[in-house]
């Protein structure tokens, strides 16, 4: 993916020099290992700050909501699907965007790598297949596939689905991926088992709302948790309120979530809240044959009625 960076800078410079766009949305090198920061590049000279590697996990579509300028945006598979969703939901217009597709090899899980390290990590570099972690008195080489972010490990849409140009050739989409093993395991639990599972899952939540705010789908001007009249959810750390937040937020993402993993990546306390959205994603796929963000033309399942919609849950 190293070659990506050069290409990305070149494209950004070209777009800005030609005034094709006013801004380019990409990543710059972060201040700590395995952390890149989203940035808005405004001049051709600043394009030299752009980078691309396995630490570009933030979903850039999150930064497009209700913007009015003409924007160039670098988009992985998941970013591109959220751009599609944004366009369908009228949060941005297609004409405003120059989408530069970035075929993705998967982003790495910095929390997991840090937990696997034998000390403080000072530097992380990568080559085609390996992630090389160096720290105080140790060096570790991980195979990229072993340290992918959980959602990237089961991703079946690595290539952008919508783009004006590409940074590199399309990558091969993984064929035999079992996307929903974890969801099936939870489905198999008893009601009581499920209750306990989610109790434990959410035990550490501090309601910082990083999951919500990192999510490109969560753009409501006032989130339901912030409403005071009526107040739908208590604001304390009461477990029922914490659960209500996660569970209702997930439902708001039904048929829209692309499993980009932004929520999990942002979570400061390591909650695997994707199990909520993945269940809904699975239901959408199995019951409606729907995967979010693949097409500008098709209407989302919760947005359209079809006579053959499944209704066996209704008596």
């Amino acid at each position: 993916m190293r070659a990506y960076t050069e290409k990305i800078r070149e494209i950004a410079r070209r777009l800005l020099e030609a005034c094709t766009v006013e801004r380019v949305l990409g990543f710059r090198r972060g201040s700590v290992p395995m952390m890149n920061a989203p940035c808005f590049v405004k001049t051709p000279a600043e394009a030299a700050n752009l980078v691309w590697d396995s630490n570009c996990g933030i979903n850039l579509a999150n930064y497009l909501t209700s913007r009015s300028e003409k924007i160039g945006i670098f988009a992985k598979g998941c970013d591109s699907r959220n751009i599609v969703t944004h366009i369908i939901e009228n949060k941005i217009r297609r004409e405003q965007l120059v989408i530069i597709g970035v075929p993705c090899h998967g982003m790495i899980d910095r929390h997991r790598i840090a937990a696997m390290a034998d000390g403080e990590i000072r530097e992380v570099v990568e080559d085609e297949n390996n992630i090389i972690v160096q720290g105080d008195g140790f060096k570790k080489v991980h195979n990229r596939h072993d340290v992918l972010q959980a959602n990237c490990a089961v991703c079946t849409h690595r290539n952008p689905v919508i783009y004006d140009e590409l940074v590199a050739d399309l990558v091969e989409e993984p064929g035999d991926v079992d996307r929903y093993r974890d969801v099936r395991e939870i489905e198999a639990l008893s009601a009581e088992g499920k209750w306990d599972f989610f109790d434990d899952l959410l035990h550490d939540c501090i309601r910082c709302y990083a999951c919500r705010n990192a999510c490109p789908l969560c753009y409501c001007p006032t989130c339901f948790v912030d409403e005071s009249r009526p107040q739908w959810v208590g604001k304390s750390q009461d477990p029922v309120d914490v659960r209500t937040f996660h569970f209702l937020r997930a439902y708001h993402c039904a048929g829209r979530c692309t499993d980009c993993g932004a929520c999990e990546r942002a979570c400061p306390v390591g909650i695997n809240m994707r199990v909520f959205t993945k269940k809904l994603e699975k239901d959408c796929l199995e019951k409606f044959g729907w995967e979010a963000g693949l097409s500008l033309e098709a209407r989302p399942p919760l947005d359209a009625y079809r006579p053959d919609d499944p209704d066996d849950f209704i008596r």
Binding site: C39, I58, I206, R207, Y209, N213, A266, P268
Partner: peptide, 13 residues
């Protein structure tokens, strides 16, 4: 501020 997503992580941690 550009990249900030306005979560409470920094303040809560």
């Amino acid at each position: 501020a550009f990249a900030c997503i306005n979560c409470g992580t920094c303040t809560y941690l």
